[in-house]
Each structure stands twice: as structure tokens, then as C-alpha cells.
Nucleic acid binder design. Sequence first.
DNA 1: ATATATTAAGACCTTTTTATCTTTTAATTG
DNA 2: CAATTAAAAGATAAAAAGGTCTTAATATAT
Lengths: 145, 145
Amino acid sequence: MIFSKACEYGIRATVLIAQHSLNGERVGLKVIAKEIASPEAFTAKILQTLSRNKIVSSIKGPRGGFEIPIVNMENLRLYQIVKAIDGEELMEECGLGLKACNPEKPCPIHHQFKDIRTNLVKMLRETTVHDLAIGMKDGATFLKV
Amino acid sequence: MIFSKACEYGIRATVLIAQHSLNGERVGLKVIAKEIASPEAFTAKILQTLSRNKIVSSIKGPRGGFEIPIVNMENLRLYQIVKAIDGEELMEECGLGLKACNPEKPCPIHHQFKDIRTNLVKMLRETTVHDLAIGMKDGATFLKV
DNA sequence: ATATATTAAGACCTTTTTATCTTTTAATTG
DNA sequence: CAATTAAAAGATAAAAAGGTCTTAATATAT
Ligand code: FES
Ligand code: FES
């Protein structure tokens, strides 16, 4: 897998929350876990991380849940989610596990790999959660099965 | 990480063996582990997998070790090594962990992700171990630090 | 204020990955 | 063929990832 399971669930949860926020609704853990087909308790942990990293806002108590203000969503990039959960290794490290990706002392696949990694980073930096939420709202994309 | 640790060591070991094979030499476990800076016993396990998958040939006994015939090396692709160790998930599966990557029922990042995955697969299918071994022989690439 | 709904935090368990150790098998050399 | 060298195989251990459960904190509604 390119992302960890936690990160997959994290992105899916964020997109679902964003979709609901477009409708001015909050969404709670139970609904999230059901809609993205993820284990509930594990998803709760991941939402804590997202909340601590200001990627989602959480409100406790009755009628609480998770939300992402639309203004935030438009400037929230996939990169931030992946960084919060998996860190930046994927985006920066050597594809063959050398201590660092160093063009001065490249590993055998450095030349072939660097463009792929650059494109991945570009995609993660350019794609906003708002973009993804719109796709969901249009019914063009799906979060489970 | 894009590849598992086992796969990273596996590719690095394969390239080192190929480099020695270009010189008509066999290379043993101890030298491999030292030259690619990997844990010896774990590397032995990975070499068993590579051997079972006919990616490297192993010869037991005095003056034994591992080798890759040059003819094989020219047609041996990174894809085969990754497939043998990590399987084909990375090359085929949904980036957000849906059961399958299905363009008929795409996940929110499907469109953005599929080109990156396609380029990765292209690179893995096109790059031969011979290409990588040549880079090592030229002193243009490195397997540790 | 109190009861209730909901997230936060922390301890815990399970599975997979990474890594090691021991014994067996096979090839070479003398 | 005996001794030696090297990989194969299998059992075991440690660390990380994935996942659960219990208790605490906090916001809302009555
Ligand atoms: S050194 Fe390995 S990817 Fe750059
Ligand atoms: S459906 Fe997710 S990458 Fe294609």
C-alpha cells in the first residue's frame, strides 16, 4: 500500500466530514465509521490525530461531531493529512531505504524514482479536500466497497 | 515507505549480485549484507525468496554464493522483484484502500492517483536489473549510507 | 443543576513485519 | 569419503501497525 491503513481511513474520513460540512452538517463517529466502512474505535483514534492537527474540528456533547469549515477546506491539502498520519517519509525519503535521498550519492533507482515521487508530492500538494468533497457531492466518487 | 524493508533490501541485494555477476564473480551472504548495510539473517531470508522466484541463482558449498546470469539480468525487471516480495497490491490496488480500484466506482482520489500508479508500474516494468548493475559498475550509484 | 450525548485519552490486545538463532541440506576440496 | 563451506529451512523473538476497550472530559438540552 502506498499509504498506511490509518492514513487511508484518515483521508476517507476527512472527505466524508467535508462532504457533510458542505451541507452545513456535523457528522459523528458512528456515521463516519459506517459510511467509510472502517473499524469504529480505530477510526476514533485517527480522528483524534486529525483533530490535534487542526485538520478537522471536533465538538463534544449532544449534536456534536466533526466538521471542517468550508473556508478551511478550500485550502486543506491531501499533503497535510498524509503528513499528520504517516509523516513525510514517503514524500522525501530514498525509494531503496538509504539514509537520505541524496542526488549527490544516488541509489540505483534514484533517477527513475525521483520523478514519480515528485509527481506524487505535486498531486498531494495540489489536491484540496474541497475538490474531493465536491466529487462526493456530485455522486462521482465513492468511499466504500 | 513505498516498498517494504524486505523489498528494499531485496532490490539492493539483487543489484549488488548483478554487479558482481557482470565481473563473473559470485557473492556470498556476508559480503552482500555488508555491502548493502542490511541485517545478515534477514537478508538470508529475502535471498531465499528471490532464489525460489528464480530472480537469483544460489550455489551452496565452498566458493558458492549468489549470481545472476547476464542473459537473465538483461530481461529481469524491478517489477518481478517487487512482485516476489511485496506482491502486486502497490501496482494494482486503490490508493484509499477500497476493495478494488474500479474506474466505474472510483474513490475520491482515483483520477489523481491512477496516473502516478501507472507511471510507477511503467518504471518497474521498464527498468532492468542490468541497467541498475551498469550504474553501479560505473560508480554512478550507491547501495548504502 | 442534572442527565445525556459525544469526543479525548490511555491502557490493552492482536496481527504483521522485521529480525535472529539453530539445524539441515548440498556442493567443493583434499 | 571426510571435512569444510555455504545456502535452505524452520523455530523463535522483538518491534511496529492495526485494532479494541474502559474511563474521563466536555458540551447540550431539559
Ligand atoms: S537516493 Fe534513492 S531515491 Fe534518491
Ligand atoms: S478507486 Fe481508488 S485509486 Fe482507483
